[in-house]
Nucleic acid binder design. Structure first.
Ligand SMILES: [Mn+2]
Ligand SMILES: [Mn+2]
Ligand SMILES: [Mn+2]
Ligand SMILES: [Mn+2]
Lengths: 229, 229
DNA sequence: TCCAGAGTTTAGTGTTGCCTAACTCTGTGG
DNA sequence: CCACAGAGTTAGGCAACACTAAACTCTGGA
């Protein structure tokens, strides 16, 4: 029997590894060096942990070929992501956090809260389906709907889109965006773009903004109801 | 420079040791075996930790003579107690916890919350001075007012008292008390007591209760405004 | 096809924090 | 006043998790 099934609690490290590997795996296995970079650890440390997690049947691993979550590993990862996003939502809604400061707090709390507390927070929020950054919150059964989104940097001009998610954690960037009214739910239209990954001009409800292409990569958008697909 | 002053974060174990030693020390040093019993660890483990904490200047220790908090150790302990009691208060006030279930949750969260979050919870509660069990909440500067209290088991008959604190963590006992309306703030008068630590009959606002002496030890009372001292 | 460099693993260490077993100290009763 | 029970410490282990250094493997270009 593996650790998770036995009801033993996983460590903070293990939970963060699994969450990170979930994020990095997009079908393919996650590379050791990718994981190391994401968690700010040495590749050697990651190799050691991969070995332990493979023994615990939380990962599948072929040497030199990267690591993939098992079904059980994925279950744990989604549980942590649910916790993280619900905690972020709760702190923003009820305790005065802004979206640029809430991540670090959630990164620690996600390992300390009980299932009971997570579900009470979810209930207090009315069971939200996305967090303050627009990221979808997995359901308690582990199901999650990932909407198709396109980075603002690749949007056609003249068509109305809505910002759905902000794929960034950097507080400075998040404040930069908030200052310009760029948050999930906001409707935008690309007015013009300059070549060679140059700045993009967009129209919002009450203003126009010029945005660098790097920033535009993090603004994930989808067509609005009224627009032509 | 010691760890706490350096701003390094102490581990969960260290924080719980310091909190426990604070609770056990009443002027005198805490015995190794007392600490071991309180934390459910072997005395050998406690000896080892006492040595490390003494090196970190969080404890004073003379071999075979027990351990005492240093000024710095006391500061850490009171900070943890403030966190614990504010978290309990917040969870009861805002997330539907009852006083018999809130302790375990707080025992984990106290190590994971930031100072910012603790102070936001305090503000949301209106800066309470006692927790759901009536225990005083240390101020942010570490000051704490410990009211003089007398166990219900030692109260004179016929004088009105108020329950101020419930010195117990056992959920069953706490539910037992809640079922009988015995919580901090409630006014009671001892009607009669039987000898040889026998049951005590008390009068509440709308009922009379007969209470065993063991339970009565945990109900800590003080004279009410209107009563004769 | 070979091999250099990138990527990965192994080997060896250190810290924290727990354990059991074996010891040493302390204070009290005979 | 001293032996001995019980409290406390030390010794030796182990598991988790991190590191650095060194060895190994894979792969893409010459
Ligand atoms: Mn985390
Ligand atoms: Mn988020
Ligand atoms: Mn604790
Ligand atoms: Mn309490």
């Amino acid at each position: 029997m593996n650790a998770a099934q036995a009801g033993e609690s996983l460590t903070r490290s293990v939970e963060d590894y699994l969450k990170t590997i979930y994020r990095l795996s997009d079908g393919r296995p996650a590379a050791t060096s990718e994981i190391a970079q994401a968690l700010d650890l040495s590749p050697a440390s990651v190799s050691g942990m991969i070995k332990r997690l493979t023994e615990q049947r939380l990962l599948d691993h072929a040497p030199y070929r990267g690591a993939q979550l098992t079904e059980e590993g994925r279950r744990v990862a989604l549980r942590m992501i649910r916790r993280h996003r619900l905690i972020e939502s709760y702190l923003v809604a009820n305790l005065g956090y802004s979206w640029d400061t809430v991540h670090d707090e959630a990164e620690r709390l996600e390992h300390a809260v009980s299932d009971t507390l997570v579900e009470r927070m979810a209930a207090a929020l009315g069971h939200p389906t996305s967090d303050p950054h627009g990221d979808p919150i997995p359901a308690a059964d582990g199901s999650m709907i990932e909407e198709d989104v396109v980075p603002l940097s690749e949007l056609p001009a003249g068509v109305e889109f809505a910002i759905r998610r902000v794929g960034a954690e950097d507080p400075e960037l998040l404040r930069h965006l908030a200052d310009r009214g760029l948050r999930p739910g906001v409707t935008i239209t690309v007015v013009s773009r300059q070549p060679f990954n140059g700045p993009i001009t967009i129209r919002l409800a009450t203003s126009e903004q010029v945005i660098g292409s790097e920033v535009a990569h993090h603004l994930l958008c989808a067509a609005t109801e009224g627009s032509v697909a």
